[in-house]
Amino acid sequence: MPLWTIHHTPGLFSDAEKHELASRVADHYEAVGLPRFYAVTVFQEARREDFYVGGEPAEAGIRVVIDHIARHSTGPDSRRRTAQWISSMLRPHLEKRPGVHWEFHADESSEELWMINGLVPPPGGSAEEKAWAKDNAASPY
């Protein structure tokens, strides 16, 4: 499960832009073999008075926090590739906003601490996970 939490100051994303970015995120994870419903994107708007960069209120700011649970990087090169595709996914949405401060980071959490609808997700790449992907839903296995 990747969880993308996008903290941002007001007015930076329209509803259509949020949908487009969330769809691109889900598209990517589906393309690498994860069930599409694993990808969760949450937009959290923060007032400028509540969004600080360097101790000062940000006029326009975006901070993306990504939690990876279903899959983990295998080493430094893998982590660099992950950072590069995250950046390439965000750039078209963020660089068109002049003066915006944006950054991201990704954490890799233990899959032993993860459940969906009370079910332990099947092992990565297993027939059961492929069935979840085909059905786009969790089910007992």
Rank of each mutant, 00 (worst) to 15 (best):
M1Y: 02
L3I: 13
I6R: 06
H7W: 07
H8Y: 04
T9P: 06
T9A: 08
P10R: 09
P10N: 04
P10C: 07
G11N: 03
A16S: 04
A16C: 00
K18G: 01
H19W: 00
H19T: 13
E20P: 02
L21N: 08
A22D: 04
S23E: 12
R24V: 11
V25M: 13
V25I: 15
A26D: 08
D27P: 11
H28D: 06
Y29I: 02
E30S: 14
E30K: 14
V32K: 09
P35H: 03
R36N: 01
A39C: 09
A39T: 11
V42Y: 00
Q44D: 00
E45Q: 13
A46E: 08
R47K: 15
R48S: 15
E49N: 14
D50K: 13
Y52S: 12
G54D: 06
G54F: 10
A60V: 01
A60Y: 05
A60E: 09
R63F: 08
I66H: 08
D67E: 14
D67G: 12
H68V: 07
I69E: 06
R71N: 06
G75H: 12
P76H: 13
P76D: 14
P76T: 14
R79K: 13
R80A: 15
T82P: 00
Q84H: 12
I86F: 05
S88E: 09
M89R: 05
L90Q: 05
L90F: 04
R91L: 03
P92W: 05
P92C: 05
E95H: 08
K96Q: 10
R97A: 05
R97P: 01
R97Y: 03
G99V: 03
V100C: 02
H105E: 03
A106H: 07
A106C: 08
D107E: 08
D107Y: 09
D107C: 08
E108M: 08
E108L: 07
S110V: 09
S110Q: 12
E112F: 11
W114F: 13
W114H: 11
M115R: 14
M115F: 04
V120E: 00
P121T: 00
P121M: 02
P123F: 00
P123Y: 00
G125R: 07
G125I: 04
G125Y: 01
G125C: 03
A127L: 09
E129W: 07
E129P: 04
A131R: 10
A133F: 02
D135L: 14
D135K: 14
A137F: 03
S139F: 12
S139M: 12
Y141S: 14
Y141I: 10
